[in-house]
């Protein structure tokens, strides 16, 4: 564990907490994409299939449980909670998530480190995580008026990705044989998707104005 990975995990954790805070205390999920949240639930479910069979550390297992629990509870809130579900922008959040899942599954079947059930699903989760933010970014672009918590949620998620890249660079130079092309390329693609959002986020922060995206 290095400082970059810890920082990445903590910003990831913070992003989930910000979203849960918004949903739990304000009882609103306005501006949050259910499609993206469902994709994240699938990402964690397919990646952490080995939670019972492979043990890395208490920290790892605990974090896996937190990410699994939080992603599924966010989906539950948005779909079934009687007040929260009414604040969901159903008509704007129309991204077809099958268009993301199918290519990711095909790519995982073609490009993987080992052709085993767990390994292919694990690789699928990497590819899917890389593009899972897209429905959220599209929704953001459509609704345009973004409240602070939604903006902070996406900002923290992007921060998590940035720290993970620093973590990989650090591990590459400090650990022998640490080479994981699939993880790196998927992670890099994911981080690049945030670049545009970050640009406008910093612009609004610099000008001390509410975040607004161009049409």
């Amino acid at each position: 564990m290095n400082i970059f990975r810890l920082a990445g995990d903590m910003t990831h954790l913070a992003s989930v907490l910000v979203l849960l805070l918004k949903i739990h205390t304000i009882k609103s999920c306005a501006g949050v994409s259910l499609k993206t949240q469902e994709l994240y639930a699938i990402v964690f479910a397919t990646r952490y299939l080995d939670i019972l069979t492979s043990f890395v550390s208490i920290y790892n297992t605990l974090m896996k449980l937190i990410f699994l629990g939080s992603s599924f509870s966010i989906v539950w809130y948005m779909k079934y909670h009687k007040t929260v579900r009414r604040t969901y922008d159903r008509d704007q959040d129309t991204f077809r998530h099958w268009f993301l899942m199918l290519p990711c599954l095909l790519l995982a079947l073609l490009i993987h480190e080992k052709f085993t059930f767990f390994e292919v699903l694990w690789t699928f989760s990497l590819y899917l995580e890389a593009v899972a933010i897209l429905p959220q970014l599209v929704l953001l672009q459509r609704t345009r008026n973004i409240d602070n918590l939604t903006g902070q949620y996406i900002f923290l998620l992007g921060g998590y990705r940035g720290f993970y890249i620093l973590n990989w660079i650090y591990r590459y130079f400090t650990e022998p044989h640490y080479v994981h092309w699939i993880t790196w390329i998927a992670g890099l693609v994911q981080t690049l998707l945030y670049a545009d959002f970050f640009y406008y986020y910093f612009l609004s922060w610099k000008n001390n104005k509410k975040l607004q995206l161009p049409a």
């Binding site: 990975r5 995990d9 080995d50 492979s54 890395v56 790892n60 974090m63 990410f67 044989h177 640490y178």
Partner: peptide
Amino acid sequence: LDALLSHDEL
């Protein structure tokens, strides 16, 4: 072990 090593991240 190698496969496990690549899975030690979240």
